[in-house]
Write a protein that binds this DNA or RNA. Structure first.
Lengths: 249, 249
DNA sequence: CGCGGATTTGAGCGACGTCAAGGAGCGTGG
DNA sequence: CCACGCTCCTTGACGTCGCTCAAATCCGCG
């Protein structure tokens, strides 16, 4: 497990690369000012690094600035369930900040940089920036919505539907957050897919092969190239994500 | 599907029966005053009634005051996934209020009464009562945590582990919110269990039988009597819910 | 070149699904 | 009171989806 690395302020919020994207909402100058003071540093980790561990009490919460990460839980015998993926603009570690102890772990899927916030300043945010507090609640509600969809998928979709849903979902999120250009690859292994879908790795492999045979995806360069995201969504019977502009912090 | 019924203010927040329970946090007089103005009415529905429908834009959000409800989603061919259950003190409909459109439906499992709040006043809550705004975020994060656990369960636990987890979970939540005394029954059918666990009803029946043979539960009076909640938790390998005091609104 | 991780494939098996039928409990109408 | 028609629970037979075991291949890296 590669270690974490640098920890120094780099990107000023005023020049945050996410602010330009149509997908995210604007800040008022006042909010931007607060957020830039709320942010106390930046953290860069390698692919495979653990960002937060279940059971820990972190003094920080983070917004993903670049790269892919994922949240997961383990059973005592090692069975792993991946809960969701995080892309730029996503907040991670809120749970630990607001409820004391992390109930899941977070790991980097690719090299990741994160904006670091101090939980102690959350009070100020709620007290003085109700619009940002509202955003925080919005973000939590959005995560909930996505977990609902995952639950529906794992509980009631067949293996091929689940796989198609997951890849369409990741492609959409990746695209909206600027991570996935048309020819970029989702940086996951088939083991990740298996642990997200609740399937064995062998069956996952056979299921992905079917999707590849239908020319919906191609597995290459240790990742998944999505050839036809609408085709995937159709296989899954999935509507896609709502196209609202997302707040972030 | 039985219709909704009464809609008139009944229980003043000052006399809210939930405030006495050790499980919930206290209000300051100021907060209590605001909440009692935030609450615009009360809604009582029969068992089986639909409280909110996927796709609707509700002008309200609700706190369960008494009874059991559940959230669910459907696939286009009718497959149903139950996402979570709501007990007294739980907020439902936040998603619709904060993001426009409900992405899931909510149905009453038993007769249910709900406190009705107007989404238009949410602004005031965030602006003038940061402590309540914080609570709202706390509640959303808590729901997230529970969905994480469900996802782990459906994705990685076996049928018998899943069933044991679900029943232990519901028992704990019911007890903490004052719904389940020691000899009370969880008001669910085996179809509900199946749709929560992602199993067929036949297999659910056979799985519940195994739990009954081990004297952990008994199925009676159209519901589930939990005989040994710790035994269930042990079968599932589940730690139980954290014992924090819960905020509610 | 050797090694470890990721992917691929086949064979056999077991968990869980589907189909089918029957029984128990309860409310309604005759 | 009884007949009926629900809904819910139960059980058996059998099929299949997805799991485990096992082995081979590919690849990047030291």
């Amino acid at each position: 497990m590669p270690p974490k690395s640098t920890n120094s302020q780099k990107t000023p919020c005023q020049q945050c690369p996410l602010r330009g994207l149509a997908h995210f909402r604007e800040f008022t100058p006042d909010e931007l000012d607060f957020v830039s003071r709320f942010k106390t540093g930046e953290l860069s980790v390698d692919a495979g690094a653990t960002i937060l561990v279940e059971g820990s009490h972190s003094a920080h919460l983070y917004t993903v600035l670049s790269g892919w990460a994922f949240r997961y839980k383990l059973l005592s015998d090692g069975r792993r369930q991946i809960l969701n993926y995080a892309v730029p603009g996503d907040l991670v570690g809120l749970q630990g900040s607001i409820q004391g102890e992390m109930q899941h772990s977070i790991e980097a899927l690719s090299p990741v940089t994160l904006c670091v916030f101090e939980r102690d300043k959350l009070d100020q945010l709620f007290t003085r920036y109700p619009s940002l507090a509202y955003d925080l609640t919005w973000i939590a509600a959005q995560e909930e919505r996505i977990l609902d969809e995952h639950l529906l998928s794992i509980g009631r979709r067949t293996a091929i539907e689940r796989a198609a849903y997951l890849l369409a979902f990741m492609f959409e999120r990746g695209r909206a957050s600027g991570l996935v250009s048309n020819r970029a690859v989702l940086p996951i292994t088939q083991q990740h897919v298996a642990d997200t879908l609740g399937l064995s790795i062998v069956h996952t492999n056979k299921t992905l092969r079917k999707l590849a045979d239908r020319r919906l995806i191609r597995w290459q360069d240790r990742g998944c190239l999505v050839l036809d995201d609408e085709g995937l969504a159709a296989v899954a019977g999935w509507e896609g994500l709502p196209e609202t502009r997302r707040p972030f912090i």
